[in-house]
């Protein structure tokens, strides 16, 4: 019995001392956390996916608590339910999560542009892009190896005729493909708003673009002139549409010299 006690008592004493030190230290050196933080963190799903643009759910919760201008509708997996809870927890006005959809800014398929080399490497856009910007004539365009297809959780992307196509009815707007594309060709747009989409990302000069792809934006500025709302700008030799100002009238698409502006509406992405 004494042997057990001689072992147990010192360990218990050391344990009690450690506990006491920790309790005192945590009281003395307490760092005040915003009392709303646990409540806000509780609302988030905890998947740490990073879709909100912050480092995990903790990061987003912290940003929400510290900065009032951070919107509550950034959590895409949580969708409206989470946005509502967050707004309640923070006492701010609820704004609905806008459903997003992916669009690809390239239409240089096999009929409009050609390959310049015979690529026989790894079947991956990222790998192909590292080798002199891919096999195609246009180094800005879709590489067609399907990196976006591989990451898409809903099988909404297929490679057809050498370029990626997005099935708008299947797309859930997670943005995985936009993050994956090595050329940054995929962007997310608001799903229930009719708007024009430039289907070219070539930043080459007009003459060069025209030589490599008959569907490319040559930066002629015709769309800038015809747009009634002033929503279009040519930046780096490619037309860029401001989705806030675009009314979806279709003037630009109808007047585009190379037919590289498409219209997006409830029927999906189509030419005019």
């Amino acid at each position: 019995m004494t042997e057990i006690l001689t072992a147990v008592i010192p360990v218990v004493i050391i344990g009690i001392i450690c506990a006491a030190v920790l309790v005192v230290a945590s009281k003395i050196m307490e760092v005040k956390e915003d009392e709303r933080f646990p409540a806000v963190r509780e609302c988030l799903p905890g998947a740490n996916c990073g879709a909100c643009g912050y480092a995990g759910c903790d990061g987003y919760a912290k940003a929400l608590v510290e900065n009032d201008s951070v919107p509550t509708n950034l959590c895409i997996p949580g969708a409206e339910a989470v946005a509502k809870q967050l707004s309640e927890a923070l006492g701010v006005e609820f704004s609905e999560v806008k459903k997003q959809i992916a669009v690809i800014h390239c239409c240089g398929d096999c009929e409009h542009t050609k390959d310049r080399v015979d690529y026989r490497g790894m079947e991956s856009c990222r790998a192909a892009n590292l080798l002199f910007g891919g096999k195609g004539e246009c180094t800005y365009g879709c590489l067609g190896m399907g990196d976006c297809q591989k990451v898409c959780p809903k099988d909404a992307i297929c490679i057809e005729n050498g370029i990626a196509h997005i099935n708008q009815s299947r797309c859930i707007g997670c943005g995985m493909c936009a993050k994956t594309c090595p050329n940054g060709l995929i962007s997310m747009i608001i799903a229930d708003k009719a708007q024009a989409v430039v289907s070219c990302s070539s930043r080459d000069k007009g003459a060069v673009t025209r030589k490599v792809c008959s569907n490319g934006c040559i930066g002629c500025r015709k769309c800038v002139k015809v747009c009634p709302g002033g929503a279009i700008n040519v930046i780096d030799n490619v037309a860029v549409i401001d989705p806030e100002k675009c009314t979806g009238c279709g003037e630009c698409a109808a007047n585009c010299t190379t037919n590289c502006i498409l219209m997006y509406d409830e029927n999906g992405l189509h030419r005019v």
Binding site: A7, I14, C18, V21, L22, A25, M29, V31
Partner: peptide, 24 residues
């Protein structure tokens, strides 16, 4: 002979303490 158990206890408490101090 209590080495292992005491060391675990002390190290765990120490790390927690260090974390509190660093945080502050």
């Amino acid at each position: 002979y209590l080495q292992t158990i005491v060391f675990i206890l002390v190290i765990a408490a120490l790390v927690q303490l260090v974390e509190i101090v660093l945080k502050r």
